[in-house]
Simulated assay, not measured.
Amino acid sequence: MRLGLKAGINDQQIADRMQYQPTYFEFHLTAEDVTPTGLARLRGKIHYVRSQQVERIILHHPMNFKGRHLELSMNEASSPERYRFLWQSTLDLLQLAKAEDVQLLVHGAYDDPIEELTTGYGNITDAIRVLFKRLDYLQRIGGENIMFENSISPIFYYGNPIFDQAIFDKGYRLAFDTSHCFIKLQGDQTAFLQSLTTLREHIVHYHLVDSMGQQHDGLQLGKGKIDWTQVLPRLNTKASSIYEVQLADQNNAQEMIASHRYLTWIERQLPE
């Protein structure tokens, strides 16, 4: 296992992460980071992180705009300003990702209520159909610089064998958040491990995080119910990964580092 860490566009956070010499680094972006000024600042941070011998850099698309999730499936007529921001920010970040040879991570969905996901659509099936058309488009223009992350949303999640196979058949480059899948399955370890196995070939990035399997809890590895001895052999060894665990102090990555120590300890216990 190689070390992967995450931080915002914050010099103190970045300095804290760089002291551990991570192989992978993910920037957690906000709406302010994709303004013209923000993008110029982000480019400078990418250059700095790369100068620290980080091998792979990921840009996590902003989650929110004016306090609301940026759902990729949203209906333009129901939220025109948020819709415009979603697409402008995505295209601007994709252009930056291609220019700087980094990765852009986009959420296929978040966990908004069904009534919000279906606003402007006849039903949830229509929302899913629109979502997959947009994922197809982004995959086509993003190529090797884009990936899509799962959530616990009914319109884009991992863990259902039929849905997993449909996603796999699309050939998308996938980001697999372990806690999101585990929570969606309400702690069903067998189904969770099967999803990791089914999607492995197309997974290019992992968010490694533990969970009790009931709600978003972002636990340090070893503090939840995920069986990491079963997870490790199922990971795509070509993929990058970061520890997306809750920190007591955003300027101190100690819970991420403890997670990495735990996982490398697990790795040493596995048979050759």
Rank of each mutant, 00 (worst) to 15 (best):
E71P: 01
P161I: 01
K45H: 15
K170I: 00
M18N: 10
F192E: 04
G187S: 06
T125L: 13
Y121N: 09
L135W: 12
T23I: 06
L219W: 02
E100H: 03
G8E: 07
M63L: 14
T198H: 07
L232T: 03
H260E: 02
P161R: 02
R82K: 10
Q13V: 08
Q52D: 05
T264I: 04
K225W: 01
S241M: 08
R200I: 03
F148V: 09
V54T: 13
N64C: 07
M63A: 12
H61V: 02
K225D: 08
G171V: 04
R84H: 10
I167H: 05
V209S: 08
Q254P: 00
H107T: 03
F27S: 07
M74Y: 03
N252D: 15
E244V: 05
L105Q: 11
R173H: 15
L208M: 08
L247P: 02
E244F: 04
Q139E: 10
L117V: 06
A248N: 11
G8N: 10
H61F: 15
T37E: 15
H202Q: 15
R261S: 01
E255P: 00
G108Y: 06
Y24Q: 09
P62M: 05
I183F: 12
M1G: 15
E255C: 01
L199K: 10
I128H: 10
F25Y: 15
N10I: 14
F148R: 02
I9H: 08
Q220G: 00
P233W: 05
Q214M: 04
R268L: 02
D112G: 04
Q19F: 04
A40I: 06
V54M: 10
L199H: 11
I162P: 00
G142W: 06
Q139T: 11
R68D: 06
H216G: 13
M74N: 04
A127T: 15
K225H: 13
L96H: 04
N160V: 01
H205M: 02
Q103T: 01
G38N: 07
R82H: 02
Y24T: 05
Q230A: 10
R261A: 03
V231I: 03
F192W: 02
P22R: 01
N123Q: 08
L135S: 12
I141C: 12
Q246H: 07
A40S: 15
T190P: 00
H207D: 08
L235M: 13
N251F: 09
K184C: 08
H205Y: 14
L39K: 09
L138H: 07
D33R: 12
L199C: 09
E81P: 00
Q103W: 11
A239R: 01
E32V: 02
T198M: 09
I141N: 12
Q21N: 15
L135C: 10
V231C: 05
N251G: 13
V106Q: 09
F156D: 08
P22N: 06
D112T: 13
D11E: 15
P62D: 07
L105I: 01
I14E: 12
F85E: 06
D210Q: 07
V245T: 05
T118E: 14
L91G: 01
A99K: 11
E116A: 09
I57V: 07
A109W: 08
L72I: 00
V130T: 14
Q52G: 05
L72F: 03
K225C: 06
V34Q: 10
Q12V: 15
S211P: 06
Q88I: 01
Y83D: 02
R41N: 14
T30W: 13
F176K: 07
R200N: 14
Q186F: 13
L72N: 01
P62A: 02
I58V: 15
Y172N: 07
T35I: 09
